[in-house]
Simulated scan of single mutants.
Amino acid sequence: MRITSRGIGLLITGVLLLVGGIVFGYPELAAIGVAAALAVGMSLAAGLLRPRLEVGRAIEPDRVMRGEECRVTLEVSNARPWGSLTVVGEDYCGPRPVPIPLVRLRPGRKTTVSYRVPTERRGVVQLGPLRVGRRDPFGLARVQRPFGETGQVWVYPYVHPIAGVPSGSSRNLDGLAERVPHGSSTFDSLREYVPGDDLRHVHWRTSARIGELMVRERVDTSRPRIVVLLDDRTAVHHGDTFEDACEAAASVVAAATRADLSVHLLTASGTSLPVAADSSGYLDVLAEARPHTDEELGQNGLAGIAERARQMQAGDTLICLTGRAAPEDLGAMMALRGTYATIMIGLFGPQQGPGADAGFQVIAARDAAEFAQLWDGIWS
Rank of each mutant, 00 (worst) to 15 (best):
G67H: 09
E75R: 15
P51W: 07
E54T: 13
V64I: 14
E60V: 12
S43C: 00
M42G: 00
A79W: 06
G56I: 06
G83K: 01
R80F: 01
V64T: 12
E69Q: 15
E69S: 15
V76K: 02
V40L: 01
W82Y: 06
M42E: 03
L48S: 15
V64W: 09
G83N: 03
R71Y: 08
G83C: 01
L74H: 01
G41N: 02
P81S: 10
R71K: 12
V76T: 02
S77T: 10
R66Y: 03
A39Y: 05
E68L: 00
R50M: 10
N78D: 09
R63H: 11
T73A: 06
M42K: 00
R52N: 11
A39P: 04
D62M: 07
E54G: 13
E75L: 12
E68R: 12
P51L: 02
R71A: 10
W82E: 04
T73Y: 06
W82S: 01
R57D: 09
P61N: 09
A58E: 14
R57L: 15
R66Q: 15
R66D: 07
L38D: 05
E75P: 07
S77R: 15
R50F: 04
C70Y: 07
I59N: 00
R57I: 13
A39W: 06
E54R: 15
R52M: 12
V72Q: 00
V76A: 07
P51V: 01
R63W: 02
V55H: 05
G83S: 03
G41T: 11
V72R: 06
W82R: 09
R63T: 10
V40C: 08
P81K: 09
V55C: 10
A45M: 05
A45Y: 05
I59G: 05
G41H: 03
G41D: 04
L53K: 04
M65S: 15
V76H: 02
G83Q: 02
G56N: 14
L48T: 15
R50N: 12
V64L: 06
P81H: 07
E75V: 14
E54Q: 14
L49H: 13
R63I: 02
D62E: 15
R80W: 11
L49P: 04
E54Y: 11
E68C: 05
L49F: 12
C70I: 03
V40I: 03
V72H: 04
R80Q: 13
